[in-house]
Design a protein around this nucleic acid. Structure first.
Lengths: 222, 222
DNA sequence: ACCTGAACACCGTTCAAGT
DNA sequence: ACCTGAACACCGTTCAAGT
C-alpha cells in the first residue's frame, strides 16, 4: 500500500494567512464549517502550526471580524456632511454583515473587541459632529450602536436559516407571512397586520428607517 | 464489587419538567454548563428519555426562552398610558435578560421563534396605541425590537465575560475605562472621551435613554 | 522558532434493546 | 408509550516529539 501523499506548505504560516483562510471558510460554508480540521486541510498543515499563531478559535473569529469591520470603517463616507455620513456608515455596516453573517454573530457575542470600538468611535464622532449635546452624546452613541448590533444579530440568524433550510428568501417570507396571517386576531392583532407588510418589505430600507428614527429623536434635543 | 446505585425517577417526565431543569442549569451555571449529560444527571434519567420529549438542544433553548419572555409579556403594564407602558415593557425585557443572559443570546440567535413574536406584538400594539401612522408603524416596531435585541445580545456577552473572568463589575469597567483612556487621541478621540463616562454609567438608564430617543423620533412623524 | 499529528476530554445525537 | 445507556461521529485543544 502506498502511503497518503499529504501536501505540506513550503512557505511560512502567519496569523494573517490563517485569518484569511478562516474568513474564506466562513464565507463559503458558514459558521459551522469553521473547524480546526477544515483549517488544517485548507492550509496543508497541522493543528499545532495554527495554535502557534492563534490563541484559540474565539481569537480567530475575533481577528477575522476585526478585519472586515476595519475595511468598512476606513474610508467610508469621509468628508461628507455628518447626517449623510452616518447613514452611509450604517448602510456600509449593514451590507458588510449581510455579506458576512458570521461577523454579525461575532459582534453580538464578543462586543468588547476592537471591531466594536471602531464602530463606536466612528458613530460617536459623527454624532458629535452633528452637534449632539455632551450630556446625551454617549447615550445616543450607545443606543445607535446597539441598534446596529441588533440588526447584525438578526441578519446573521436569517442567513443561517436561509442557507441551512435551503429555501429561497421569498418562499421563506411568504411562509412566515402566511403563518402570521392565520394567527388568532384577538391575541395577535398587530402581528397579523404586519404579515401583509412582511412579504414586500425591504430589510435594507427598514434598517435605514430605524436609523432615521434615532436621528430624528436626537435632533429634538438640540 | 457492588454496582453503582443510580437513582431513577419514579414520576413521569414531561417537556415542562425538562425545560424547567434546563432553565435551572442555565441560570445557575451559564450556557456552557447546559449539556445533555448534565440534564440526565439532574433529572435522574437517560438521553433517550429527554429526546422523547424534546427534538434537540436548540428546541430546548427555544422553549426555555419562550417561557421567560411569556412571563414578562403577560400582565406587565396593562392598562397604562401607551408611552409609559412602552417604557415599562422595555425595562421588563431588560431586567429579564439581565437576570437570564442566555435568553438574550437565544433571542439574537433564533429570532423567528414565538418569544420574539410576543415581543413584536406587544411593542407594535403599543406603538399603534400611541398613534404612530400606519406607513411608519412596522418600520418603527422593527427598529425598536431590533434595539431591544441589540441590548439583549450585549447584556448576555457582558454577563458571560463577568462570570467567566470572575472579576467584579466595577473592576472590569475601571479596566476598560483605563484602556480606552490610554488610546491614541488622534485616532480615537470619541472613545477616549467616552472612557470617563463609562465608569459611572448605568446600563439600565442608558437603555431607557435609547428607548426615549426612538419614541422622540417617532413622535416627530405625527 | 516553527511545525507534526496522535491523543485527550469532551460534545449532541442515535438506536437496539428493554419495560 | 416511555425509557435505558452503549456507541457513533464529531468537536477544540494539548503536547511530546520532530526539524
Amino acid at each position: 500500500m502506498i502511503g497518503p501523499v499529504t501536501k505540506r506548505r513550503t512557505d511560512g504560516l502567519s496569523k494573517d494567512v490563517i485569518v484569511r483562510a478562516a474568513a474564506g471558510i466562513l464565507d463559503e460554508a458558514g459558521e459551522a464549517a469553521l473547524t480546526f480540521r477544515a483549517l488544517t486541510a485548507r492550509l496543508d498543515t497541522g493543528y499545532g502550526a495554527i495554535y502557534h499563531h492563534v490563541a484559540n478559535k474565539s481569537d480567530l473569529l475575533a481577528a477575522a471580524t476585526d478585519d472586515v469591520i476595519a475595511r468598512v470603517m476606513t474610508g467610508t463616507a469621509d468628508g461628507a456632511e455628518p447626517r449623510e455620513a452616518l447613514r452611509t456608515v450604517a448602510l456600509g455596516l449593514f451590507d458588510a454583515i449581510d455579506a458576512h453573517p458570521w461577523v454579525g454573530a461575532q459582534l453580538s457575542r464578543e462586543p468588547w473587541r476592537p471591531a466594536l470600538m471602531e464602530i463606536y468611535e466612528r458613530i460617536g464622532g459623527l454624532l458629535d459632529a452633528l452637534g449632539v449635546p455632551e450630556r446625551a452624546l454617549f447615550d445616543a452613541a450607545g443606543a445607535l450602536v446597539n441598534y446596529v448590533l441588533g440588526v447584525a444579530g438578526q441578519n446573521a440568524a436569517n442567513a443561517r436559516l436561509l442557507t441551512s433550510g435551503q429555501g429561497d428568501r421569498s418562499a421563506f417570507l411568504a411562509d412566515v407571512s402566511a403563518r402570521w396571517a392565520s394567527l388568532d386576531p384577538d391575541r395577535y392583532p398587530f402581528v397579523r397586520r404586519a404579515a401583509a407588510h412582511l412579504r414586500e418589505h425591504d430589510d435594507r430600507e427598514q434598517f435605514l428607517a430605524g436609523v432615521d428614527f434615532f436621528l430624528a429623536g436626537i435632533a429634538t434635543l438640540r
